[in-house]
Amino acid sequence: MFSCTIPKLRIIFPTARSLSSLASPSQIEPRQLAFPPKYQQPRQVWLENFDTIEEKKLAILELHPEVFAANPRVDIIHDNVRWQSLYRYVSYAHTKSRFEVRGGGRKPWPQKGLGRARHGSIRSPLFRGGGVIHGPKSPNPHFYMLPFYTRIHGLTATLSIKLAQDDLHVITDLEIPTDDPNFVEELVKSRKWGPSVLFVDESDIMPRNITAATDSVKHFNLMPAYGLNVYSMLKHDTLVLTRAALDLIESKLLTHLHKNNSVPNTQKYKLNQV
């Protein structure tokens, strides 16, 4: 009855803050944003712990709006997903033309005098078992390169969407006490991170326990920051970044968005480049 009328507001007294599990601000360094935004407010995200099943919110981190509050350009995201599935696809469909099909060198019947249609080969496309006109030829690679800044904007748009949909979490690091898969399963379940989770760390050498724990679980995947891509982010329900990975990804994307010489990146892609 009353719950409908009373607004659900939480008033936090200074004493409550001292009792809360929130770490004191001195322990965790706040983030310094490179290229300070001139109009948009920085986005905020909780820094969570990863060493216990129950969630502890350690601090609030600020995120650069240019990376984490970009326009949700689904058109650019679609370009990226299409490119990621096509650049490694090779079509092996193959057909033979009338000259590749075996036989058919002899005129099947004389030109005149039989009352039948004139034909020069039994492998003509008109015949059953004949060649195919303009059929698919194998191998047909579909490789192409997406423009560099379409790839960059694809990443910012996807990261922004993940954050806006509450599917992006930041943790301190990937250290867990056991290598038991049940620990990660329970942790993900209790924090409602959705069935599939993508953990992104700064480098590709990760702590032993998390690698052993997620090895047998197919919907928990580990990825270094350099492997971050649009398709994987969309494929997994939740994206979990370590703080180091967050710093690295943000700084990399910001340098590409702000650097003055983008010519080497925007030049035509050459297959034999070093």
């Binding site: 001139k38 109009y39 948009q40 968005l257 702000h258 650097k259 003055n260």
Partner: peptide, 13 residues
């Protein structure tokens, strides 16, 4: 320009 209803960002140059 923070209190403006809209904003046009400058380019990297």
């Amino acid at each position: 320009l923070k209190d403006r209803p809209y904003f046009i960002a400058r380019t990297r140059n």
